[in-house]
Nucleic acid binder design. Structure first.
Lengths: 200, 200
DNA sequence: CTAAATTTCGACTCAATAGTCGAATATTAA
DNA sequence: TTAATATTCGACTATTGAGTCGAAATTTAG
């Protein structure tokens, strides 16, 4: 008899629990400050048990990114495939990301910042990377389309992309509080940045 | 006979050399990936010699921040005390920082990003922190003044500050290349973000 | 119930690295 | 020259933390 469905689910649930614990520890101790012992304690397992579910610390790390980027990608698909114009789609996507990021701030801060801190020989095809690249490609495409349709200011799209990305990250992750920023705020500032003053 | 002026200078020069080497290693290996042995090798000293100049790894780290923020603060003083209006002063300061940051990208990336990664019991009065806070306070003040004078959009200044800070960091540190961004680009995007459309 | 499979974990190994020590070398002042 | 002072450093220590091991506990299936 092979493993039952319930067993699979419980196993997945335990993995989730470990990832959550890891996220908590990463948040308080930083990426390198976090130890497997602490993650084990935080998630309520013995250290050796962690290695029964994840082959290495790095895999715990990537597990968080995988889960996060996959979920984000899936939750955005309807917006991506909607047939609104580039500008509206672009803004909708960013606002949706912002909302999710504020609901799960730790996770998203990790997703957006942690990858920079990796120096490992990282040629391997991580799932999360492809999702991240896909998302960035979509956004970049919308930006290009929007610019060529005169919906955005006529500026180099790479530059715009950096600027918007920075603004976005700044709004959501700068400072400690996260209560003061509404979807409306983000929309307002995005509009401010991407409204072409030469258009009526 | 106490130590001569030249001796002091040479000692300071050796400290500089160590800080530069440290910056190089930090850049390639990351903050926690960098070891004192590597920093020693990179800067051309034996490890023990490093400890003759800096009491700990953390002090090397803070040495970089101290030097950077102090120099930045000093180089900005004339702009800060100029009597141009808040908007112009604000933009001048940001453009000057951007220029310096692009000339010494490693150093400034470190200055802007490294502090987040510190989790140490950091109550101690680090010089660099006061410079950083002063600079942020000045910028925040200019923003407040500018808003109340109608030179900026009427938005919450904390929000604006986050947005501008993010945009700035995004423009300068996102991606790998740093050649494509001119002072003009930065000015253009800043203007885009901080121009009140309701004003003539 | 019993045997196989799954899950758990404390104790151990082993490598990496921050920081120290004491001796050697170089510089300065008289 | 010579003694004091400043500088250099390789080898050593001590700690920390990732990953392993083997045995114990629990669950599942017949």
């Amino acid at each position: 008899m092979s493993i039952s469905e319930r067993q699979k689910e419980e196993r997945a649930l335990r993995k989730e629990r470990i990832l959550s614990g890891a996220l908590t520890v990463f948040k308080t101790k930083g990426l390198d400050g976090a130890t497997m012992d602490e993650i084990a304690a935080e998630s309520g397992f013995g250290k050796a048990t962690l290695y029964y579910y994840f082959p290495s610390k790095e895999d715990v790390f990537c597990g968080i990114l995988d889960r996060g980027w996959t979920q984000l990608w899936e939750s955005l698909e309807e917006d991506i495939h909607s047939d609104t114009g580039p500008r509206e789609t672009f803004i909708n996507i960013l606002i949706k990301i912002a909302k999710k990021a504020q609901q799960n701030r730790n996770e998203y801060e990790f997703m957006f910042n942690a990858p920079k801190a990796i120096s490992n020989i990282d040629d391997s095809d991580q799932d999360w990377k492809s999702y991240q690249h896909q998302l960035y490609a979509i956004l970049k495409g919308l930006l290009d389309d929007g610019i060529s349709q005169g919906q955005f200011p006529k500026l180099d799209s790479n530059l715009m992309f950096k600027a918007i990305g920075g603004l976005f990250v700044g709004l959501i992750f700068m400072g400690e509080k996260n209560k003061d920023i509404t979807g409306g705020d983000i929309e307002k500032l995005l509009n401010q940045l991407i409204t072409d003053p030469t258009q009526p």
